[in-house]
Design a binder for these strands. Structure first.
Lengths: 246, 246
DNA sequence: ACTAATTGTAACAAAGTGAAACAAAGATGT
DNA sequence: ACATCTTTGTTTCACTTTGTTACAATTAGT
């Protein structure tokens, strides 16, 4: 799809240069050198991005952008000789998507234009994927997606969130002893509380292991699945079949 | 609405500084110093923007971003000491939304973060298109346009306005835990009442979740669709088929 | 055999969540 | 305009989850 860019600058030489460059880069380009022309063009044409000079003769680019934002979401990139941090902040506060200081590298301008257009067409993080797949071990089957543990004939047991994370830690490391610190990192992936607990000789993991054992072991007092490695940690002492896990 | 930012840097001092600054600027912040932690966090939490250092010890930020872009649209801003135009272009080509060179002004960083998040939430200039399409999940079918929920054999149930918004929140984020704050922002898009309720430990969401459960769960006392994530929020624990949704 | 360290477990406390009852606000019908 | 019904949020109590503490049991080293 051919994207349209409106370039707004009262420096006619730069206007022409930018228009030519953007056309050869695959865009359809409109040009304007006054605020009135801007209004006319965007009322008539579909515009995918406006490249807007801050310093125009008849009206500042900032004011144009503020007015535009009253009823239009079209992406705006400011180009400007004004390079101070406060000028840039003013541009962003006016509603710009990006602010590029003259003189600029044309290729870099191009990738920034593409990034803003791409973002404006894409939306948010909604589509990111959750882990999926199935682990089978002993008489159990754990579905990662729904975090459900059931016997292989369908009888389901209820696990708490922390129990689920612990089980996942074991299933991800079958037959390998894992330390309490390593388990903490599975339970608290963003690290803070886990580090805090790990550093103060917390017994929380041991209690949690006991709780998981009481749910999945045939005889929790003589555990066969989650076995203690004295002085090290715990090991899932049975082989695990992973089906479509990633 | 409280936005979440994931800050990724192996310089723990800068990581801490950025996290503190962003928290006082109104964001919820997660931190990571390795690519594995990044993967863990984004698979479990909804992230509105990732601030990603290019030079990490275990894997370059560029590679992380490339991998991320295989199935994720979350906005990414690179922060880097590498300032050449070709480094920047490489960052944008990897899928970044912005590229900020160290050392940087924190206020300017903030407005650039806000610009990227804002754009990612807003879409394009032709917005305000009426939402339409259909979600299918479990034995249910939800038509967005008419806000009707029915079983796939045609039996329709009546949902209130708030119940519809809650269901839409879940359907828009399948398999991903969403916090109560995030749910509030779906229920109160113009923000005011939602922010008020969120800040005073309101139990309104929990009650509403209970009401929706009583309508769509086979056994509301043992919910299989809307599952509680203890200490976090709720997750729609079944996959969703989207048909012509935009 | 003794000692120290580690682990298991029960009881308790704190935080988080479910559900029912009630109140207030909003919508609908006459 | 008023009455009635529906929706929505608050409150309270009960239940669940999670971590701490204290004591008992087990393990490993001397």
């Amino acid at each position: 799809m051919l994207r349209t860019i409106l370039v707004v600058d009262d420096d006619l030489e730069l206007l022409d240069l930018l228009a030519k460059f953007l056309r050869t880069s695959g865009f359809s380009v409109f040009t304007a050198n006054s605020s009135q022309t801007v209004s006319e063009i965007i009322s008539r044409r579909r515009i995918d991005l406006i490249l807007l000079d801050v310093m125009l003769e008849d009206e500042s680019g900032i004011d144009i952008c503020l007015k535009l934002r009253e009823d239009n979401l079209v992406p705006v990139i400011f180009i400007s000789a004004l390079s101070s941090n406060s000028d840039r902040i003013r541009g962003y506060d006016a509603g710009a998507d990006d602010y590029i200081v003259k003189p600029f590298n044309l290729e870099l301008l191009l990738v920034r234009i593409k990034a803003v257009i791409s973002r404006s067409q894409r939306g948010t993080s909604i589509s990111h994927r959750r882990r999926s797949g199935t682990f089978r071990f002993s008489s159990w089957e754990f579905k990662v997606e729904s975090s459900r543990l059931s016997t292989q004939n369908g009888f389901e047991i209820s696990l708490s969130r922390k129990e689920i994370a612990l089980l996942f830690a074991f299933l991800s490391n079958p037959l390998i002893p894992i330390t309490r610190e390593e388990i903490f990192s599975y339970l608290y992936p963003d690290g803070k509380k886990g580090i805090d607990l790990a550093s103060k000789d917390s017994r929380a993991i041991d209690v949690l292991v006991g709780r998981l054992r009481s749910k999945i072991e045939q005889d929790p007092k003589n555990p066969k699945l989650i076995v203690t490695e004295h002085g090290i940690g715990y090991v899932l002492s049975t082989s695990v079949e992973k089906i479509d896990v990633y």
